[in-house]
């Protein structure tokens, strides 16, 4: 009974914080100034947001075939996301898109 409550709580925490990181990543993709900086919040969505939500679902499912499938989805996302992002960055670089290097505001000295 006690264990059940702990599991529910953990699952809750994972799903909610995963949702938080998703929204933060989405906000970042709108706020940041150029393509190369926008790739970083996309990474937040792909790693932390997706990872936490899938982890929450895994805790919910317990030991079963469902967990194995969730694990496969998570592994697949973790392997493809850097590949896709790297391919995008390389294509943008070769396509002549220059990264914005100097920030509009100097925050350190």
């Amino acid at each position: 009974m006690m264990l059940e409550t702990v599991r529910e709580g953990l699952s809750w925490a994972c799903l909610l914080s995963g949702g938080f990181f998703l929204v933060a990543g989405g906000i970042g993709m709108l706020r940041l100034p150029d393509f190369y900086t926008r790739m970083h919040p996309a990474g937040v969505i792909d790693t932390m947001g997706a990872g936490l939500i899938l982890l929450g679902l895994m805790i919910q499912a317990g030991f079963s075939l469902v967990t194995v499938k969730l694990l496969l989805i998570a592994l697949f996302l973790l392997f493809t996301s850097p590949t896709a992002v790297h391919a995008l960055a390389k294509a943008a670089r070769h396509g002549g898109l220059e990264p914005l290097l100097v920030n509009t505001e100097e925050n350190d000295e």
Binding site: L15, L22, G25, G26, M29, F35, R38, M39, A42, I45, D46, G49, A50, I53, L54, L57, L70, I73, L77, S81, A84, V85, L88, A91, A92, G95, L97
Partner: peptide, 23 residues
């Protein structure tokens, strides 16, 4: 503004769709 921005957004949208289907 660039096609790469759109592709990046669509890529993230795909990840979100996977999550949506699972949840």
């Amino acid at each position: 503004p660039t096609v790469y921005d759109r592709l990046l957004a669509v890529n993230s949208f795909g990840t979100l769709t996977v999550l949506l289907i699972a949840v």
